[in-house]
Each structure stands twice: as C-alpha cells, then as structure tokens.
Design a protein around this nucleic acid. Sequence first.
DNA 1: ATGTCCTGCAGAGCAGGA
Length: 260
Amino acid sequence: MKIVSWNINSVRFRIAIVEQFLREQAPDILCLQETKVIDDDFPFEMFRSLGYDHVVIHGQRMHHGVAILSRVPITLDDRFDWQANREARHVGVALPNGVRLENVYVPAGGDVPDREVNPKFGQKLDFVERMTRWSEGLSGPTILVGDFNIAPLPEDVWSHKQLLDVVSHTPIEVDALGRLQAAGDWVDLGRRFHPAPKRLHTWWSYRAKDWAASDRGRRLDHMWATQDVAAQAVAHTVFEDCRGWLKPSDHVPIMTEFAW
DNA sequence: ATGTCCTGCAGAGCAGGA
C-alpha cells in the first residue's frame, strides 16, 4: 500500500502533473492539500479514469482545501475545524484494514513570528495546540499526513541559522510541533527512513530564480504514524524531481509504502 | 529587501494569501 501526500497549490491548475505522477508512481491513496476548489468544481474525472473511485474532499472557495483520493474503499468522513473559522484544512477517513488516515493543512502563519503583531502566527500556534489536544484523545492505528508548514530539524531547512526567525522554523513553532508529536507518540516516517543529518526538503519557494541552483528548501510536508503502523512502513520517498516539472507546485509529493 | 504564483472579480490588472 502506497500513500502519497502533496500540497498541490490548485488541483485544477496542476491536473496534468497530478496525472503524470499518478501514472508513474501508481499510489493507492493520494492526499492533497491546497486544492483551491469548491467541492462542486473538483476535477473528479481524471482521478476516476485512473481508478481513484473513492474520493473524500473538503474544499472551499479560493484558498486551502484538502482531498483524499483512493483506489481502495475508504469510509467515514471527518472534517475537523480546529480554528472554528470554517477553513477547509482537514479531512480524515478509515482504510479497509481499520487504519485511520488524517490529512491536514496547517496554516502558514504569515510573515512575522509574533502573535501580537501578526494574528496569523497566533492562529497557527493555536491550530497546532488544538491538534495536540485532539491527538491526545486518539486511539488506534493512525497515519497523519500533510503540509504542517513547520520544518522542525536543523537539517529540515537550507540554513538553520538564517531561518531561526523565519516563520516555519522558529523555536516556538518547532516546540509546538514537538508537543504534537509527543502527544500521539507519532513516528516521523520521513526521518525514520532518512535520518538527520541527511538533507531532506519538500518545498522550494517560487521566488528563487533557479530553485535547484539556489536550493533553499525546507521540509514542510510530513507523514507521521502511530508506532503500530510505523512498524509496517517499508520505504519513504521524497519526489524532489517534481519541483522541476512544467507548472510545478512549490511543494513536492512524499510517499510511504506499507507492508500490507 | 526582494523575488513568484494562484484565485476571484470582472472583463484589466489588483487584492489577498502563501
């Protein structure tokens, strides 16, 4: 079973690269973030043509939006609103083997890492805090994937020193993410298969002239699993090449393969 | 400090978000 997570930055605008990726890698399940489309306008057809008949989406106008597309049946349909502001940032399902799959898009948090000056930063911290409370109450095998918008380790960014004050890598965010990870005893699958100090990045800004040459990446996208599920994981891949595709997302897909 | 990219509105370039 191969499960992929990808912040696609508009699923309609990037439908061609999504199709290319699905044809090349043939994951069983694809979790998307930033679909940027209301549910009625979701481009179901391409997914259906490739066998992704089981779809649970949670979209909204313009921003955010998450989706789970699957070749295996998925049941349930949770949509948590940890900010209580009706933003579409989570969708959760159950797989046939009983494993829960939770797909989340954590707020980016604005530019200034100070909640007094920048309310969005406070909202991001509050969002992660509420996820932590939720995580404490979870039971059973679970996979948590998505764009967490936080790069926790020094090796998760191109320069630890230069990003200490940059939203996504500040100590206050890293601490908050650490509390979330501890609350669920979550295993970071990316780092389980590619331990630090190996460089592991999933996002490169659009603003660089040449993303590969400057290579100022960050690991904002994650796959976590409870211990029982993590024991079944056999491989984890970051598809860095996708950043160089035509009309790319600024994020690349990440994939974990499980033994079942 | 700057850079770019997407959506929606409107019917062209902006605002807003990332």
